[in-house]
């Protein structure tokens, strides 16, 4: 999505002190910068699991595959990065607990995260600290609830047949 000059210092290929050297040099740098993060690979794409200080794009909850060293919480906030200069992608995933669904906002670094963070707030209820305009974007302003959470019903109208009393 956007280039990342602040995060990639001049061509250091760092290795972490840890179990195995990380194949992807970009991920290696990120892991070194944020201690406590864990690297994994998902279908050939590098993924880094970080602590809460890094931000994200959209959320999911429910059961998922476990990565060693990562404590799963209810929400995962995911940010996909694209580096045009290096022509590669990186995904950063952050676990957000249900009891305290807040996370730092990326808007000061990438103004383009404005809309997606509002969407995440609107549909999941995760608040982004530092976002200039934390309001609903897709649902009406006075909507109650966060529709994409698994415990929010899809509100399906049951199928009715001719002659049935109308469900409305």
């Amino acid at each position: 999505m956007a280039d990342d000059p602040a995060r990639e210092p001049d061509h250091e290929s760092a290795e972490t002190e840890g179990p195995a050297p990380i194949a992807d040099e970009v991920a290696a740098v990120v892991v070194e910068r944020f201690p406590g993060s864990v690297f994994a690979e998902s279908h050939g794409q590098p993924v880094v699991y970080v602590d809460r200080s890094v931000v994200v794009d959209h959320l999911l909850d429910g059961t998922r595959r476990r990565v060693d060293g990562v404590e799963p919480e209810r929400f995962e906030v995911v940010m996909n990065f694209l580096s045009h200069a290096r022509n590669r992608r990186l995904r950063i995933v952050c676990q957000v607990p249900e009891s305290d669904p807040t996370i730092a906002s990326l808007v000061p670094v990438y103004p383009g995260a404005n809309f997606p963070e509002r969407e995440s707030y609107d549909l999941f209820g995760i608040t982004f600290e530092g976002h200039p305009d934390m309001t609903r974007i897709l649902m009406p302003d006075d909507w109650h609830g966060f529709p994409l959470r698994k415990d929010d019903a899809a509100a399906r109208v049951p199928v009715t047949f001719k002659g049935d009393p109308s469900p409305r």
Binding site: V107, N114, R118, P132, D133, T135, R136, I137, D141
Partner: peptide, 12 residues
């Protein structure tokens, strides 16, 4: 930032 500042207390 200055542009965003103005938007802070507005509703959606």
């Amino acid at each position: 930032e200055t542009r965003l500042e103005r938007q802070t207390d507005e509703g959606a």
